[in-house]
Nucleic acid binder design. Structure first.
Lengths: 248, 248
DNA sequence: ATGCCTCCATGACGATGATCAAGGAGGTGG
DNA sequence: CCACCTCCTTGATCATCGTCATGGAGGCAT
């Protein structure tokens, strides 16, 4: 088969199979999850495909104009906000199917930069189109409300973590939460690769890098996990979840 | 005038002047802020009035079924979440015009209890009616999206506060934020009464009560504020705001 | 390979804020 | 008016975790 024929086929395949919500393996987790096939096509029509982001590239920058929300298709990202002359703060990590940018609706400006932690593809959803479509599709509207509501709940959990949990509990929470998110996406909840650095983790959890390192070492000694660089093997998930609770 | 006539008049007055959005002094801050008069009447029609909550009474309990969101009309409330056998965590304070309960949409359950800090009146907005009305009124829908988005942004700020700021900065942030919220509501930004206890403040900010006391004392010595019990007098708002930034 | 990054681990020290303890103030109900 | 309770303050001590410092490991370009 000539090379360009293969390319054309590849292009066609991706158009047919990869870039449409119906064929997306994430459709049961993503925004259109509640839609009928017919409605999904309408939704699909407003999506803009994006070329993949490379590690370190930003989806958008803090302060730039809000136009779209984004659904992560593959890879992962971090959100960072810079305030005054203070240093950055990692406020979120995003995994496939999660919605990025919802906190920009209010002021029509993105309140933080979002940066790819690895090669990452996203679906861009122009918000004005999404809003009008949500007028016609109650299911879509409901799902959008639910997504935002869930993010609010998750934030409250994070606030609890930051204000009441010890460093060990924070790390344990972080790993069990990651494990759970991988599980929901069909990956192994026991064995995965961290796409973020220790510094990112520490910043997110309100801990110094050194503390993260030390505690990971301790977890390893206790036989809870096996960590080698960014490869993680959870040996004793139960115990980790128990550690994560703050009811010592 | 006979007593029951006075009562009837009182009832009528409140119906005409106090219980309708058009006449509410908060309408420029509250959910229907973007609505035309005509649309506001529609919105008004789905509101359920509630008899005032007394101090300590709960609007709803953690875990109870989600049916409505609430707009605070007067007074103030705190949201507290209890996790496992751990102690309570104060996750929010609500002032007039703010929306309570948005984080319950997702799981159709309120994720925390909401308790009046003083005599408090709220407007109940059944969510299913709000949702259908938001189909017909794009302005209302937009405002709802914006409210949730704003809450997300505020949460991110709180996360930053909890993970990066010192105890002094937290208190300074808390007071300047309160000051600002009072100002927006037409009250003095310099002189107000705290409706929450030191314990609530500490819990909310991730600090021990003792620390809150000590730092308030220090602020007072520095001439930043005057505090007597729950009465607060801000003497040097600029300095307080400066303290609040974490760019020492 | 070699050098130069960034990232990660580990040790020593110190500061910030939690905990423990005790007492005062103010409000409420008898 | 007194007793009691909750709320608040202040002091002393201690632990957790941040900071500083150093060295190793791995990736990437030359």
């Amino acid at each position: 088969m000539p090379v360009n024929a293969a390319n054309a086929l590849g292009k066609r395949r991706s158009l047919l199979h990869e870039t449409r919500c119906q064929n997306c393996s994430l459709s049961s987790l993503c925004l259109p999850l509640a839609l009928e096939l017919e409605d999904m096509e309408q939704f699909d029509a407003i999506i803009r495909r994006r070329s993949p982001l490379k590690k370190g590239e930003s989806l958008f920058r803090q302060g730039s104009a809000f136009n779209s929300v984004f659904a992560v298709r593959s890879g992962s990202l971090k959100q960072i906000t810079t305030e005054g002359s203070g240093e950055d703060q990692v406020t979120n990590f995003y995994l496939p199917s999660e919605l990025v940018g919802l906190d920009g609706i209010d002021e029509q400006i993105y309140p933080g930069s979002v940066i790819a932690l690895e090669t990452t593809t996203v679906c861009e959803i122009p918000f004005d189109r999404l809003d009008s479509l949500s007028e016609q599709l109650p299911e879509l509207r409901g799902q959008l409300y639910r997504s935002m509501s869930k993010e609010l709940r998750d934030d409250r959990k994070m606030m609890r973590l930051l204000s009441r949990k010890t460093a060990d509990q924070r790390l344990a929470s972080f790993f069990s939460s990651l494990s759970d998110r991988f599980r929901r996406r069909g990956y192994s909840p026991y064995s995965f690769r961290l796409s973020m650095s220790r510094a990112d983790i520490g910043n997110y959890l309100g801990l110094a890098v050194e503390t993260v390192s030390r505690i990971l070492g301790r977890f390893q000694q206790q036989g809870l996990v096996e960590v080698s660089g960014r490869e993680v093997n959870i040996l004793h998930l139960e115990a980790l979840v128990a550690q994560a609770q703050d009811d010592h």
